[in-house]
């Protein structure tokens, strides 16, 4: 005897509420990419910036790309900053690009927005991109060595980026560095950040 399947029997079915995406955020976002070689601390500096922006009341989307090695290989961390909810969280037209190593020198060319600011480490980037945007060669690694450790070049670059762009107040960045980076590196990180802000004040030589 055929047996009626339960799902063929009438079932109380409540119509699913279709949430119309009434308001799609339209605010212009700022897009930032920190790129270089794996191990240069790009993810860390991006999270410090993201946390500082959060404290400033902004909304961020931070994404990353890295290779399956803990050192070397191309590494990048991207931030999309918006007043409202970020609609598409990945970068498509970069406003500020930091390049700390040659391995990442050309990787972002197609995404640089005309008029963007590109900050390159002058010792480790020999093939800086060129185009309809401003490129500045800056001594991030050198300043990092001067404060005691080349590894904090990421913090120097972060300071310069914040200083030049005005996207985040210095005091907020410093507070995040105090709260979220290891105590052992605190002074070093703060000095590196300060060195970065100082670089931002130097006269432009493109």
């Amino acid at each position: 005897m055929p047996i009626a399947p339960p799902w063929s029997q009438p079932v109380r079915r409540r119509p699913t509420v279709m949430a119309e995406g009434a308001k799609i955020p339209m605010t212009a976002a700022i897009e930032i990419r920190l790129s270089g070689s794996g191990g240069q601390g790009l993810q860390l500096s991006a999270s410090v910036l993201a946390e500082a922006l959060l404290r400033e009341g902004k909304r961020v989307a931070q994404s990353q790309s890295y290779e399956p090695t803990s050192r070397g290989g191309i590494s990048r961390s991207d931030l999309v900053i918006s007043e409202d909810e970020v609609d598409y969280p990945l970068v498509t037209r970069i406003n500020y690009l930091v390049i700390l190593d040659d391995v990442a020198a050309r990787a972002s060319n197609a995404l640089i927005k005309p008029g963007a600011t590109v900050l390159c480490d002058e010792s480790r980037v020999t093939q800086a991109p060129s185009g309809d945007f401003h490129v500045r060669m800056l001594p991030f690694a050198e300043k990092a060595r001067a404060v005691g450790l080349e590894r904090v070049a990421n913090m120097v670059a972060l300071g310069t980026l914040a200083g030049l762009s005005g996207i985040c107040p210095r005091a907020t960045l410093e507070a995040v560095v105090r709260d979220e980076t290891p105590a052992k590196f605190l002074d070093l990180n703060l000095e590196a950040l300060a060195a970065g802000f100082k670089l931002a004040e130097a006269p432009v030589s493109e």
């Binding site: 047996i3 399947p5 339960p6 799902w7 079932v11 109380r12 079915r13 409540r14 699913t16 279709m18 949430a19 119309e20 995406g21 799609i24």
Partner: peptide, 20 residues
Amino acid sequence: QRLLGKIDRHRDIVDDVETV
């Protein structure tokens, strides 16, 4: 039949879509 049908019997709480 019961095993395969049990999700369908509760589509009111299972289904979820976003439309724009």
